[in-house]
Write a protein that binds this DNA or RNA. Structure first.
Lengths: 214, 214
DNA sequence: GTCTATATTCAGATAGAC
DNA sequence: GTCTATCTGAATATAGAC
């Protein structure tokens, strides 16, 4: 952890995340990681005790980044903000992390399932904490009466996060759809559905001031 | 394709699908596939020209099963059935395929991204056809006025399929949630959202007879 | 249709010099 | 902190017998 190894260590993590994301865990060799860092494979062992440990750090770092991005985005809103607004901000931050820390977060989504059991287990504490944060967000919404009583909050969370996480497989930076637009649309579908609006201006009365501030 | 090799061939595919799903492509060895089939590794080459070809067959088979299950489920409904009903049936069939052909479909979801480029490319035609089927379903819904005009149909599809596909990572056969319940809930969220019901009985008028027949 | 034997390549990891 | 040299095991794939 000395200062002069910081740069290299971070570089190794970056390169490893990139390769894990692209090729999976087993297919990524330490030789290739080292080569892209301009060093020899055995030199990696000065920084990491094993390939497994390297993967674990990539996974943990990814969750930490995404978690703190989401928490910051929500906390930037007033505590009393409508839950739909909070969810939209959280979804946007979650997607934004895919872009900023793309290789780390994508490794979490794609590679976690193939990681050695021991690595999965160590990474799980962080993942659970993040899931719990979302769960609490939705619980808050229901307590306030902003989510209908019949909704299965666990499935609601899995629905949204599942859809968000899948975006790493199709989203294209150059494409027409920005991450904010995706977060907006997904949140709107989640809260209001795609069925045609009911006759009246009923929704606007029932859900005042929730939409489109940003 | 002689009859007496049929059993073994299928057995190899089954075992391979299982291992690909669990460990990923690169981490799955032909030695282990062969071992679980009770034969030696080189014997696999009588049935498949390479490991890549084996993977391709697993991927293709998975999409074929899921596609035909979904199409059958939709076609079992009257052509004029509400689109929500069709989507619910399709979602249910999609999830059901995870159970019946779980290793094949899970391999598609988890391993496709790490497959060699050549394999991905060959598998892509089938995948595209399946996506198109869903796209047409939603387009039909919009033409009929059963989906609101402002909805971005591409995102609607990605939203639902993304969430459905992610279930392979958390669904537990012994758990409390049945696949049909998940399909029902997801479809209901997709069409009606989780915001509290609007005052009036407006929805029941606007969307007659769509809910809960099964 | 499956076998044994083997060629070839390459993986993760260690030892020890600098 | 990085190197060279190397150990050890294991991977895909081929050759050719049965």
């Amino acid at each position: 952890m000395a200062q002069d190894e910081g740069a290299t260590r971070q570089q190794i993590l970056d390169v490893a995340a990139r390769l894990f994301r692209e090729k999976g865990y087993a297919a990524t060799t330490q030789r290739e990681i080292a080569k892209r860092c301009g060093i020899q494979a055995p030199s990696l062992y000065y920084h990491f005790a094993s390939k497994d440990e390297l993967l674990l750090e990539v996974l943990d770092f990814g969750i930490e980044r995404i978690f703190s991005a989401v928490r910051d985005a929500v906390e930037r809103l007033p505590e009393a903000a409508p839950i739909e607004r909070k969810v939209r901000a959280a979804a946007h931050a979650h997607l934004e992390s895919f872009f900023v820390y793309g290789d780390y977060t994508a490794t979490n989504i794609r590679v976690f399932g193939q990681a050695p059991k021991a690595v999965q287990k160590k990474n799980l504490a962080l993942r659970d904490a993040y899931e719990r944060y979302w769960a609490e967000l939705f619980e808050q919404g229901r307590k306030r009466g902003e989510i209908r009583r019949g909704a299965h909050l666990g499935l609601v969370r899995l629905f949204l996060l599942g859809a968000l996480n899948r975006t790493v497989d199709w989203w294209d930076e150059e494409g027409a759809l920005g991450l904010e637009a995706i977060a907006d649309r997904f949140t709107e579908i989640l809260f209001h559905g795609i069925a045609p609006a009911e006759r009246a201006p009923a929704r606007e009365r029932a859900q005042p001031a929730i939409r489109r501030e940003s």
